[in-house]
Computed example of a mutant assay.
Amino acid sequence: NAIDLALALGIDLPKVAILSAVETVNPRIASTLDAAALCKMADRGQITGGLLDGPLAFDNAISPAAVAAKGIVSQVAGDADILVAPDLEAANMLAKQLIYLAGADAAGIVLGAQVPIILTSRADSAVSRLASCALAQLFISHHMQPAP
C-alpha cells in the first residue's frame, strides 16, 4: 500500500527502507528477520513497484553520511522514500517524534479498503486534517486514471 501511495505521488521507483535497530540480520532480533523476508519476497516478485532494502537502522535509511561511515552499499540506504517500522508502537513513536521534534506535518490515511480512509489524531492541526483529505484525493485520482 505504501508503494502504491508513493507511485500515486509521482515517485517512479519508491525506495523502501525496512527499519530495525541494526543493519544486519540477527536471529535474536525479530525485525531483522522480518526485513530479510520482505526483501526476499521482493526479489521473488511477490512485492513489486518499489526497491526494498533492510534491515536498516533509521540513520542508515535517511542519512547518506551514516551510510558512508558504515560502508553500506545499497540503492535505498540514505535515500529512502518509505520507512517501514517493525511494529505499530515503533511507527507511532517515529511519527510523533517527526511531528513534535522536527516540525513535520502529517497526513493520516488507511489504504487497502475500497477507498482510502482518512484517519487523523485528535491532536492533529487543521493543516494535517486538510493534508489527509488531499492525500486521499490524490490517491483516488491516481487509481481512477485509465491504464496507459
Rank of each mutant, 00 (worst) to 15 (best):
V115A: 14
P64S: 09
I11T: 00
G108H: 05
S63D: 15
A106V: 08
I3C: 02
I3Q: 00
S20C: 01
K15L: 11
D12K: 00
D59E: 15
K70S: 11
K96E: 03
I140R: 08
I3V: 04
L56R: 06
I99D: 10
R129W: 03
S132I: 03
A85S: 14
V110K: 12
L38C: 07
D81Y: 05
D79H: 03
Q75K: 12
A123F: 14
A102Y: 06
F58K: 03
G112N: 00
G54W: 01
L98A: 12
Q114S: 14
T32W: 07
I47C: 13
H143C: 11
L7G: 02
I72E: 10
D79M: 04
L135S: 05
D34G: 07
A134D: 12
G112Q: 06
S20G: 09
N92A: 02
G112Y: 08
D34I: 08
A95R: 03
A2T: 01
V76R: 05
P55V: 02
A77M: 06
G103V: 00
T48Q: 15
N1G: 13
F139W: 05
L83F: 07
P86L: 00
L13G: 09
V67S: 01
I117D: 15
I117H: 11
A65L: 14
M144S: 11
V22H: 00
R44Q: 15
D81M: 00
C39E: 00
Q114G: 14
A90M: 03
A102F: 07
L130G: 12
Q137Y: 13
A68N: 13
L13M: 15
V110P: 13
P116V: 01
V115F: 12
A113W: 13
L33M: 13
G10D: 13
P116W: 00
P64I: 10
D87M: 08
L9F: 06
A134W: 12
G71M: 09
V25W: 08
V127M: 15
V76Y: 05
G112A: 04
A66C: 04
D4C: 02
L56F: 08
I47L: 15
D12R: 02
V73W: 10
K70E: 07
A61P: 03
R122L: 07
Y100R: 04
R44G: 04
A42Q: 00
P148S: 03
L7M: 08
E23N: 05
